[in-house]
Each structure stands twice: as C-alpha cells, then as structure tokens.
C-alpha cells in the first residue's frame, strides 16, 4: 500500500471513529431528554420524601433511588432550610448513606470528582465532612484540591491555625495570591492570637503585609497595638495594609495614624488613608482630604474628590462603604 493510501485509510478511520463517538453522544442526549419527565418526577418524589422526614412524618420509601439523585436533592434543599430543620436534614442524610457516598467520591482518582465532593462537603458542613476536608487539605496530592479544601473549611469557619494553613498550602515560598489573602482573612477571626504571633516569624515582607491586612478582619481589638507599631513601618506596603486593616477594624484609636497617613510621602498610602477615612466616616479628615485635591499624584486627586463627595453630607446620597482597593 502506498503512503497516500495510508493517509486515506487513516483519515477515513479517524472520521469513522469520531462520527461514532458523536452519534453516541447524540443518543445519550436523546435518551436523557426522553427520560426527563420520569427523572423530574423522581427528583420531586425524593424531595418530597426528605421534606416530610424533616417535618417529622414517618415515610415509607422505596430504597431504589440512586444516591447521586438523593445527594442532588439534598444539596438543593439544604440552602433553603435554617436552624433545626437544617440539622435534621443533615442527620437524615447521614442515615441514608448519602454522606458516605460523598466521602467515597472524595477519594476518587479524578481531581475534578474530588473537587465536586469538596463542594458537597462544604455545603453539608457536618463533623465528618470537616474532618475529611482537613485530611484532604493536609494530604491531597493535587495543590488545587488542597486549596479548594481550604476554601471549603474557610467557608465553614473551620480552617486550621494560620501557620498550619500556610504550611499545608506551601504558601510561604511563593508570593501571596488573592486567594491566600481571602484564606488569611477567614482564618483571622478564628485565631486572632496566632495571627499576631505569626508576625514574629521570619517572613517575606509580602506575607507580613497580608497578615496585617487580615488583622482587620479578626474582630480582635487586641490587634490595635500591633497596627499602631506597624503604622510607622518603613515599608509603604505595610503602612497601606495598616490603613486597610484599621478601617475594617473600626477602632477609634486608629484615627490618629489614619490622619498621619493622609500626609504620607508615598501616594499609595495616602490613597489607602483616604479610603480608610471614608469607611470610618472620618469628618475630621475632610480638611486634609480637601488639601489632597491638589496632590501631585493624579490617583490621589481623583480619590480625594470622590471621598469628599462621600464624606460631605449630600441630601439624598447615603455614603457608601468605599471599596478598599
């Protein structure tokens, strides 16, 4: 057979194969459409049964419903319930083995299935789920899965202490991303003391900045002394973070260094200080901000103008919480 014949045959085989795959997918879609009515009915029956059980009715149900369908129904009902009903539904789910199914999927070989399982566990938030999530965060082979597990824990307020979190995510040897920042912020209210201790470690400045930023979310007024000290830090990034954190924390003592920040030599710090003043509704800062309308830096001038609009009482405009950009 000549080279050209080879090409013709190979191409024809490829075309045949891909056509068969495609037709199979069309068939799959067709069948799923045809069964849609039955599937909808089943989903409705599952939903009804769970709602009745949550309401305390005795229900005799056919145990032929697949676990996945149950899982889907439960994860749809869960966000619509509150308090005791929610707890009861979770208990029922545990009894039915739906949770077990999720935990099983969380061991899947496929990264995307494991992440799906993480999302279900995040929603459930029961003790078994939290335990498994911690395990995954600590030892899953994919960094992305560990990160997702960390989010799920963060959303449930169950992150391990910050030092541990950063170690598990191998974070400290790289630059912080926005996601790391989010994790630190959700860890801050859980471990306010550890966050302060963490600052005493040997850290890259980029990380120190983010930890200070997270202090703002800790609801811990004990952080105020640390912020006070850091407000004189030679690194302008740190001073910026102090402004953001102080604005978030809302401690009255912070006003002093926010006012100083308005005259900081570095424009970025002045910018953050303006933002902080707006967030705290610092009327006292208005004259200083008015001065900043003539700042040499364009961004500071623009932000100052915007801030004055927000700080000065205009009849029908309520001052908005300024974005801490």
């Amino acid at each position: 057979m000549s080279f050209y014949q080879d090409i013709v045959v190979t191409t024809a085989l490829c075309a045949g194969a891909i056509t068969i795959v495609f037709l199979a997918l069309v068939l799959r879609r067709y069948l799923s459409e045809r069964n849609r009515a039955r599937r909808d009915e089943r989903d409705a029956a599952i939903t009804r049964s769970y709602l009745q059980r949550v309401a305390g009715h005795k229900v005799s149900e056919a145990d032929t419903w697949p676990r996945r369908a149950r899982l889907k129904a439960i994860s749809r009902i869960l966000p619509l319930l509150r308090g005791g009903e929610r707890t009861r539904l979770l208990q029922i789910a545990e009894l039915d083995g739906v949770l077990r199914e999720t935990l099983r999927i969380s061991h899947s070989l496929y990264r995307s299935s494991r992440i799906n399982a993480i999302q279900s566990m995040q929603q459930f938030g029961s003790e078994a789920c939290i335990g498994r999530l911690r395990e995954m965060m600590a030892s899953d082979r994919s960094p992305r899965v560990r990160l997702e597990a960390a989010f799920a824990l963060g959303a449930n307020g169950a992150l391990p202490p910050p030092r541990e979190t950063l170690r598990l995510l191998n974070a400290l040897c790289r630059q912080p991303t926005r996601l790391d920042i989010a994790l630190l912020r959700s860890a801050a209210p859980l471990y306010p003391e550890q966050m302060l201790l963490l600052l005493e470690d040997e850290l890259q400045d980029a990380w120190r900045v983010q930890i200070i930023d997270a202090l703002g979310w800790s609801d811990n007024m004990g952080a105020i002394d640390t912020l006070d000290k850091a407000s004189n830090d030679p690194d302008p990034e740190i001073r910026c973070a102090v402004m953001r954190a102080s604005a978030r924390l809302g401690h009255p003592a912070a006003r002093r260094w926010i006012m100083i920040g308005l005259t900081d030599p570095v424009p970025a710090v002045r910018l953050q200080a303006i933002g902080a003043s707006v967030r705290l509704g610092l009327r006292k800062a208005v004259p200083a901000i008015a001065q900043l309308r003539h700042d040499p830096e364009l961004w500071v001038r623009l932000r100052a103008e915007q801030a004055l609009e927000q700080l000065e009482p205009v009849d029908d405009v309520t001052p908005q919480a300024a974005p801490v950009a």
């Binding site: 995307s112 992440i115 993480i118 992305r144 974005p323």
Partner: peptide, 17 residues
C-alpha cells in the same frame, strides 16, 4: 476543574479582593 460555588462564595465575602 469546573467552576464551583466555593470560589464564588469567597468573591461575595471579600468583594474587595
């Protein structure tokens, strides 16, 4: 990894990020 609700939840909580 298909986009999930986990990250979206985060966007809502820390909108300034």
């Amino acid at each position: 990894v298909k986009p999930g609700d986990g990250a979206r939840d985060l966007w809502h909580r820390y909108a300034d990020l």
